[in-house]
Lab assay of single mutants.
Amino acid sequence: NQASVVANQLIPINTALTLAMMRSEVVTPVGIPAEDIPRLVSMQVNRAVPLGTTLMPDMVKGYA
Results as ranks from 00 to 15, higher is better:
T54V: 09
T15C: 03
P38V: 13
L55A: 01
G62K: 07
D36Q: 08
L51N: 11
D36I: 05
V5P: 01
G62W: 08
L10M: 14
I13H: 14
V30E: 15
T18R: 08
P12M: 10
R23Q: 09
A16G: 14
Q44Y: 10
V27Y: 02
E35V: 04
L19T: 15
L17Y: 00
P57V: 07
P12G: 15
A16W: 10
K61Y: 14
L40I: 10
A3F: 09
P33C: 04
V6A: 05
L40P: 00
Q2I: 10
A64S: 15
V27L: 06
E35Q: 07
S4L: 01
L10N: 14
G31E: 01
I37D: 00
V60N: 02
T15W: 11
G31P: 01
T28P: 02
P38N: 15
V27P: 02
V6W: 00
G31S: 02
A16R: 06
A48V: 09
V45R: 00
V6I: 12
R23F: 06
A20C: 13
Y63F: 15
A48H: 12
Q2F: 09
K61I: 14
L10D: 14
L10F: 10
T28Q: 10
T53A: 07
N14T: 06
V49A: 06
T18P: 01
L55Y: 00
V5A: 14
P57S: 12
Q44E: 08
R47A: 13
Q9N: 09
K61P: 12
V45I: 08
R47D: 10
A64I: 15
E25D: 15
P38S: 11
V49T: 11
G31I: 01
T53R: 06
P12C: 13
N1Q: 15
T28A: 10
Q2C: 14
E25H: 04
G52D: 09
A34V: 12
Q9E: 15
S4A: 04
L40Y: 02
T54Y: 02
N1Y: 11
A7Q: 01
L17T: 00
P12W: 06
L55N: 01
S4T: 14
I32E: 00
M59T: 09
Q2M: 12
I11C: 03
Q2G: 15
G52C: 07
V49F: 02
P12K: 14
G52E: 06
S24T: 14
V60Y: 00
L40G: 00
I13W: 05
P29V: 07
P12N: 13
M22C: 03
V45S: 12
N8P: 02
L55G: 01
V30G: 06
P12E: 08
T18Y: 06
P38G: 15
L19C: 13
V26G: 07
M22Q: 01
P57N: 13
Q9S: 13
P29M: 07
P50F: 13
P57L: 05
M43D: 04
L17W: 00
M56T: 12
V27W: 02
D36N: 15
V45Y: 00
